[in-house]
């Protein structure tokens, strides 16, 4: 197992390098460059050229990349062209918000998905399964941004049960009980929207995994031992079916972090996705670059996490 994990970590390094290179070149293709904002536009072209030379913008790409990546490694993503603040500061608070949103969504997804998948798989083709399967088809067919809009309109505006924007009510002291409750209150609606749509994959996967496991020979062995149905399901079928789901945990997180773009925008929730769209609209490229880089990082780390979980839960990998 340790060998597997170490090897997996080693593979991650070139992935990260490749991803950062891609982001770097993408950034250099954007109009202007990462340092345009530092150049005073009233200067003469010669002076600008001199400035560029001084800032190293005429250096070969690998030198520029090297400078950029070492800055990034130190947490310096440059300065926002729209807010005149370090990108790092700007992203930091947004990132915390997005992490909270994703975490709650993931909890909802598993809390809803695992029972539904188990019920649906155990009583497959019965009425209860047909209802659940019908829901998953609907979920697949519904675009998240439409669903989120409907939810926001209904629960936020019409019923007024939930706030329609922001991440916390103003004027509360950070850390106080009211502050935390207000945060949760703001999170609930977007997280539920994400979960109710995002859960369908988990439900369908778990359902088919259970139906599959039910037919396995070792289930017959368990019954032949005299194991009651409850034990057959709990110890053999569910356990063996849920493990692959556990392994998807990492991917799930990645998907949520990157997938929250629409939902954050709709709920005006100040997260990374929201920041991403805002920054694109106002062409704040340093921020866009940083967000893309962080999304990429999340994807790579999520896959890494999944593989590590799988290697821990599956003895067939663990023992090698």
């Amino acid at each position: 197992m340790w060998k597997f994990i170490v090897r997996r970590l080693i593979i991650t390094l070139p992935q990260l390098l490749l991803m950062s290179l891609l982001v770097f070149f993408m950034a250099s293709l954007m109009p202007g460059d990462a340092f345009t904002s530092q150049v005073d536009p009233s200067l003469s072209p010669e002076a600008i050229e001199e400035q560029r030379e001084r800032l190293g913008l005429n250096d070969p790409w690998y030198q520029q990349y090297g400078r950029w990546i070492s800055n990034v490694a130190e947490g310096d993503f440059g300065t926002s062209t729209a807010h005149y603040r370090p990108v790092t500061d700007l992203i930091w608070e947004r990132m915390i918000n997005t992490i909270w949103l994703s975490l709650l969504s993931v909890i909802f997804i598993y809390a809803i998905g695992i029972p539904l998948g188990i019920i649906s798989g155990r009583w497959n083709d019965r009425l209860v399964d047909q209802i659940i399967t019908g829901y998953t088809y609907l979920g697949f067919a519904t675009p998240i941004f439409i669903f989120a809009l409907v939810v926001l309109f209904f629960f936020g505006f019409t019923l007024g049960w939930f706030p329609t924007g922001g991440s916390v009510a103003s004027g509360l002291e950070p850390g106080s009980f009211e502050y935390i409750m207000s945060k949760l209150h703001h999170l609930l609606l977007p997280a539920l929207s994400i979960a109710l749509i995002g859960v369908v994959g988990t439900v369908q996967y778990l359902r088919s995994e259970i139906i599959d496991t039910k037919q396995k020979d070792f289930i017959v062995t368990a019954r032949a031992k005299g194991a009651p149905e409850s034990r057959v399901y709990n110890r053999h079928i569910f356990r063996n079916s849920v493990l692959p789901i556990a392994a998807f945990f990492g991917y799930e997180i990645t998907m949520l972090i990157t997938g929250s773009v629409f939902v954050e925008q709709i709920f005006s929730y100040p997260g990374m996705g929201n920041l991403f769209i805002e920054s694109i609209l106002i062409r704040d490229f340093p921020v866009v670059t940083a967000v893309v880089l962080l999304f990429g990082l999340a994807a790579i780390l999520g896959a890494l996490l999944s593989d590590i979980i799988l290697s821990i839960v599956d003895p067939r990998i663990r023992i090698k």
Partner: peptide, 13 residues
């Protein structure tokens, strides 16, 4: 009961 296929008759996990 003893089963035919010892590869699949035991729980792999």
């Amino acid at each position: 009961m003893i089963f035919q296929d010892p590869l699949t008759a035991l729980n792999p996990l």
